[in-house]
C-alpha cells in the first residue's frame, strides 16, 4: 500500500528530470533517422519506400501507448481522485491524438506507392481512425463541463469505454481480413532483418521518449493553467466578498 499515495510525489519528482527525457528523445530520433535514411539498405520488394516505415510504425505504436497511459490513468483517477492524475490524463489524450493524426497521414503516404491507394475501408485503418474520433470526443467533453471534479470523472469513464478500441486496432490484421499486413513482431517471430530492425527500434524508443517528454510538459502546462485559474478565481472571489461585505 505504500506505493499508492506516493504516485503523486513520484510524478512531481520525475518532472524535474524531464529535460533528460527530451534530450534522450532527440538523440534517439537523430540517430534513428541517420540510420534509417542513410545507412540502412532498401527493402527487396518495396525499395527505398520502406524508409517510411521508420516513422509510421513507431508513431502508431506511440499513439497506442499514449492511449494506454490515458486508460490506466483514468482508472487510477476514478479510484484515487488525484487532480494531478487528471491533468496527466488530459495531457495524454491530447498528445495521443496528435500522434494518431500524424500516424494516419504518414500511413496514407506509405499506402499510395505500395498498395496503390491513399485510403481504403480496411478494419485496421478504420479502427485506427475511430481512435482519433474517440480522442476528439474526449477532448471536446473536457472543454464542455464546468466543474473540474465532474469533468475528470466523466472524461475518465469515456476514456475507459473507448479503451475497447485498443485491442481491436492492435490485432485487427490478425483477426479480420485486411489489406494491411499482419504484425511483423509477434509470437511467430520477428519478420524484419537486422539492418532494418535496428533503425525501427531506435525510432520506436525515440518516439516513446518524445511522447513521455511531451506528456510531462503538457501535464505541467495544464497544472499551471489550472493553478493560475484557481488563484485568479480566489482573488476575484475575495474582491467579490469584500464588495459584498461593504
Amino acid at each position: 500500500m505504500s506505493l499508492l499515495p506516493s504516485i503523486n510525489r513520484f510524478i512531481r519528482h520525475i518532472q524535474r528530470f524531464k529535460g533528460w527525457f527530451g534530450g534522450a528523445a532527440a538523440l534517439c530520433l537523430i540517430t534513428g533517422m541517420y540510420l534509417g535514411l542513410i545507412t540502412s539498405p532498401p527493402d527487396y520488394y518495396q525499395g527505398e519506400i520502406v524508409r517510411i516505415m521508420y516513422v509510421h510504425v513507431p508513431l502508431a505504436h506511440t499513439a497506442l501507448f499514449g492511449y494506454t497511459v490515458l486508460f490506466v490513468g483514468s482508472l487510477w483517477y476514478l479510484w484515487k481522485r488525484d487532480p494531478l492524475i487528471d491533468n496527466m490524463c488530459h495531457a495524454a489524450a491530447g498528445m495521443s491524438a496528435a500522434f494518431t493524426a500524424v500516424a494516419l497521414v504518414t500511413g496514407s503516404i506509405w499506402a499510395k506507392p505500395t498498395w496503390n491507394t491513399w485510403w481504403t475501408w480496411d478494419p485496421k485503418l478504420v479502427s485506427f481512425a475511430v481512435l482519433l474520433m474517440i480522442l476528439a470526443g474526449y477532448l471536446m467533453l473536457r472543454t464542455m463541463v464546468e466543474d473540474p471534479e465532474q469533468e475528470g470523472r466523466y472524461a475518465a469513464v469515456l476514456a475507459i469505454v473507448g479503451g475497447l478500441d485498443l485491442p481491436i486496432i492492435y490485432f485487427a490484421a490478425e483477426w479480420w481480413r485486411t489489406l494491411h499486413q499482419p504484425l511483423s513482431i509477434s509470437l511467430r517471430g520477428v519478420s524484419i532483418s537486422g539492418d532494418i530492425l535496428l533503425p525501427l527500434s531506435i525510432m520506436s524508443i525515440g518516439f516513446t521518449l518524445l511522447f513521455t517528454y511531451m506528456l510531462m510538459i503538457r501535464t505541467q502546462m495544464l497544472y499551471l493553467v489550472n493553478l493560475f485559474d484557481a488563484k485568479k478565481g480566489r482573488l476575484l472571489s475575495q474582491v467579490h466578498l469584500s464588495k459584498v461585505g461593504q
Partner: peptide, 20 residues
Amino acid sequence: MAKHSEDYMPIELKRAGVEL
C-alpha cells in the same frame, strides 16, 4: 491493390534465400 507481406529484408538476403 498490392497486398504485401510483413517481412522486410535487403535484397542480398533475399537472393541468399533467407526466409523470415
